[in-house]
Nucleic acid binder design. Structure first.
Lengths: 146, 146
DNA sequence: GCTTCTCCCATTGACGCCCATATGGTCCCA
DNA sequence: TGGGACCATATGGGCGTCAATGGGAGAAGC
């Protein structure tokens, strides 16, 4: 397993820490990432997290846009300027800062959501809603992969 | 037999486990799958289960689209984030987690339903109803294969 | 000096692995 | 054709391990 898949919800403790799921930690150590880079998702109320190579992914995305468009400009602002570094403690926990709480609405529990080459932090209810909406959209457009 | 066919209902034990029917396990071992990938069906209140190739199929579909489009983003949320890995114990049982229970309404028994290249977990009553409705729908449209 | 962060250790509860039992079906033989 | 032995599957439960969580103490920063 070398990608971020599946999801799990963990509780924030009294000190504001939360355990990163074991499966995700395994991916990180395999990739050799000792420091994580976080920034706000462009569409969802979620924080994207990954190793340093995560920057590459979003720079590719920016490159796919017209470099002078508003979208590319905003992405650069969020990715380059809005990012935050986070590191894990020896038990594999991270601090849930106000940067994370304010943008996601997270208060007591964190949903860790795999996105392939990175993962995201969600307020659990918001994740459930976004998923339900995405499923509904798929259904209406008749894009069932079966 | 290399496909998932027919259906069977098994009971959940006190620890929340349920035996995967022997016929389905045989298909899985023949395919060499030691870990299973599950996700919520887009139409029915059922969990779809299959080997890693089930995930591959979704990813091929995503790869065929613009990787940074909204559609791909939604698809990733559902497939990467919405899926769950499950593994069988040495006796061929799986844990029925809240992820499965909440979406399907399963409480004490699980209906295993073959769907060709994958199988599904249903609440037995819901499966019976959906089957009856499907039968009725075909009858009304004059599409009965007999 | 006080707050905040980091590291270390303890607890506990869930999960994976093991073995035991029940139950139903099949095959063989009388 | 009926009975019985055998086998496979489903089910039940004990136990060890590991991940998630909680809290204490030292170190660093304000």
């Amino acid at each position: 397993m070398n990608r971020f898949l599946s999801h799990a919800t963990n509780r924030i403790d009294a000190k504001g820490r939360v355990s990163v799921p074991s499966a995700f930690r395994a991916v990180l150590t395999e990739a050799g990432a000792k420091e994580l880079y976080c920034f706000q998702d462009f569409v969802f109320p979620a924080i994207s997290v990954g190793g340093p190579e995560l920057l590459d992914r979003f720079e590719r995305q920016m490159a796919s846009e017209d470099p002078f468009s508003d979208a590319a400009n905003q992405m650069s602002l969020l990715v380059h300027g809005g990012g935050v570094f986070v590191k894990l403690d020896p038990e594999g926990r991270l601090m849930v800062t106000d940067f994370i709480r304010d943008f996601t609405g997270i208060s007591t529990d964190v949903a860790f959501v795999g996105r392939g080459d990175h993962f995201q932090l969600w307020e659990p209810q918001a994740f459930a809603r976004a998923q339900a909406e995405a499923r509904e959209g798929r259904k209406q457009r008749g894009l069932r992969p079966q």
